[in-house]
């Protein structure tokens, strides 16, 4: 399935989609968005790449192997959850810092955002792992069936 149109489109779309996914993640606490949709949105262009080019090309787009992303995400989410215990509060209690921003606004940063980042990484790792696994040619000769 090597289509020039798909390849070209992917090349231009990829950075935009990744950027958009991060945007979705960050704004998720206030507007529609969040870790789940962000992670999916980040995985989509990589899946697209795997279809348009090759699995190896797609794999090189990721900074880490999917399984590591997944582990990192889980560790982040779990770490955030346990973090509250160290501050003498029940598991998963959120904490916030309010940073004044140039222009008079206030940036409200909290641990839930970190938790969301964990979700984002897990979802990204899960989806890319699945796509890569299924797209990789098996060591055995699959019985090909043209459809």
């Amino acid at each position: 399935m090597k289509s020039l149109i798909l390849q070209t489109a992917t090349r231009y779309l990829f950075p935009l989609l990744v950027l958009y996914s991060v945007f979705l993640l960050v704004r998720g606490h206030h507007e529609p968005g969040g870790g789940f949709i962000g992670g999916l949105m980040a995985a989509a262009p990589i899946a697209l790449c795997a279809l348009a080019y090759d699995v190896d090309v797609a794999r090189n787009l990721l900074p880490l192997r999917p399984i590591r992303l997944l582990a990192l995400g889980l560790a982040t989410a779990a770490g955030v959850s346990i973090g509250a215990l160290f501050m003498g509060r029940p598991l998963l209690t959120g904490s916030w810092v309010e940073l004044p921003m140039p222009g008079g606004g206030v940036l409200d940063l909290g641990t839930p955002l970190l938790f969301d980042l964990g979700i984002y990484l897990v979802v990204l790792g899960v989806v890319t792992q699945i796509i890569f696994s299924l797209a990789t040619k098996s060591p055995l000769h699959w019985e090909r069936d043209e459809s």
Partner: peptide, 22 residues
């Protein structure tokens, strides 16, 4: 501190569930 209530439920109020789900 969140205005998207769905997201707040996921990552704060019911975050333990979400942890299980991921």
């Amino acid at each position: 501190h969140g205005r998207n209530i769905v997201n707040v439920i996921l990552v704060d109020f019911r975050a333990l569930d979400t942890l299980g789900e991921i």
